[in-house]
């Protein structure tokens, strides 16, 4: 492997870990329910990269059999990640839908405010109304 290729591969690895940790940090540190979901998406995206990176082979081509080529990229990670992306979209959609319902029921999407509204006697009275208001 040439020096350029080696550096490039190290750089992608660092990027993956950076995105992974940054995403996880946002999930933990942010208070806003939507921003948490964005962080979660970043975290998941880094995993897509983690899978896809080793599937790429230098000089390899798309895995369609052709007499002109004899080195192919590994197609399996792509298929796996296609599935994982679908799962990620489902999770994000459900999370956003829940955020909307929380906004309707509580009038806010800041997590600490939501939790504070259920404490104390005022919270007990409001809860009776139920999520559908």
């Amino acid at each position: 492997m040439s020096l350029v290729a080696m550096l490039a591969s190290e750089a992608t690895r660092f990027t993956i870990v950076l995105v992974m940790v940054a995403g996880l940090y946002i999930v933990i540190a942010r208070n806003n329910l939507i921003k948490k979901l964005v962080g979660l998406s970043l975290f998941q995206s880094s995993v897509y990269l983690l899978y896809l990176l080793p599937g790429k082979i230098f000089g390899g081509t798309a895995p369609i059999i052709d007499p002109r080529f004899d080195v192919y990229a590994n197609p399996l990670p792509h298929v796996l990640i296609l599935t994982a992306i679908v799962v990620g979209i489902g999770t994000l959609a459900l999370g956003l839908a829940l955020a909307i319902r929380i906004k309707e029921a509580y009038g806010t999407i800041e997590e600490d405010e939501v939790l504070a509204k259920d404490r104390g006697p005022a919270g007990a009275a409001a809860r009776k109304a139920g999520p559908r208001g």
Binding site: L98, I102, Y106, D118, A129, G130, P131
Partner: peptide, 10 residues
Amino acid sequence: RDRRALVAAY
């Protein structure tokens, strides 16, 4: 039924 169900699910 309880609105806290939404927060629990989230």
